[in-house]
Computed example of a mutant assay.
Amino acid sequence: MPLTFTLDPAITPALRDGILDLWSDVSNAGGAVGFVPPVTREDIRPELVRHFVGLAEGRQRLLVGHDAAGEVAATAFISHNTHRLQLHWVWLYTVMVHPRHQGKGYGRDLMAAAAAAARGIGRVDAIRLTCRGGLGLEHFYASCGYKEVGRVPGAIRVAPDDDRDDIIMLLPLT
């Protein structure tokens, strides 16, 4: 059963809790979404609040995928650029699919829904995202049409003596 995607859903306590559960489950399964396991919902809450502030200020958009049971199964945040010379592209952040749904094609569905959402924003020529090296994520994004356009060696420190590359990917929309 495919996910049902919603752009800019109402932020309810159930949605907030669903995103916190998703984010902690993805992080604790080793997902590269800004944290290193083990993490709790309370570790993640301040970062989610920052994302919600961006939504309230109109700087970000939220794309949520719900599974057949109505549970939050996937998310991506689309962030507008504020620099006047970079208004023609957006960032994609916090791209997650719940571990219980991985391997079903939902990641590709999420990336396609994010591209469709960005195209609907108007005058957006491309999507940029970054991913953590060492996990093969760049191969997944490349299979979704993204191209590696930059790499900062050792920019992400996940543990002492464990530095990973910060890989910059771009999806042209035009």
Rank of each mutant, 00 (worst) to 15 (best):
R59D: 13
P13S: 03
R16Q: 05
P2H: 08
F35H: 14
L48M: 13
H51T: 09
L3P: 00
V49N: 11
D21K: 05
V26G: 09
A14P: 00
L15G: 01
R45C: 01
E42Q: 12
F35C: 12
P38G: 00
E42L: 05
R50T: 11
L7T: 08
G54K: 11
G30H: 01
V39T: 14
V39E: 09
T40Y: 06
G34Q: 02
F5M: 04
G34T: 07
T12D: 05
W23G: 05
G18S: 03
F35P: 12
I19M: 12
V53C: 08
G30I: 04
P2K: 10
V53W: 10
R45S: 01
P38W: 05
A29E: 06
G54V: 06
N28R: 04
L7I: 15
V36Y: 14
T6E: 12
R45I: 03
R59H: 14
S24N: 10
R50I: 09
L20V: 02
D21R: 00
V49G: 06
V39S: 08
V33D: 01
A32S: 09
P9T: 13
D17N: 08
G34L: 03
V39H: 09
A29H: 12
I19F: 03
F35K: 09
G34C: 06
L3Q: 05
L7M: 11
I19H: 00
I44D: 08
T40I: 08
T4V: 12
P13D: 06
R41C: 02
G58C: 09
D8K: 04
L55F: 13
G31L: 08
V26W: 10
D25F: 01
G54N: 12
F35M: 11
L3A: 10
L15I: 08
L48Q: 15
V33E: 01
V36I: 14
L7V: 15
R41V: 00
P38C: 04
L22H: 05
I44W: 07
T12S: 10
R41H: 01
L22N: 02
G18Y: 03
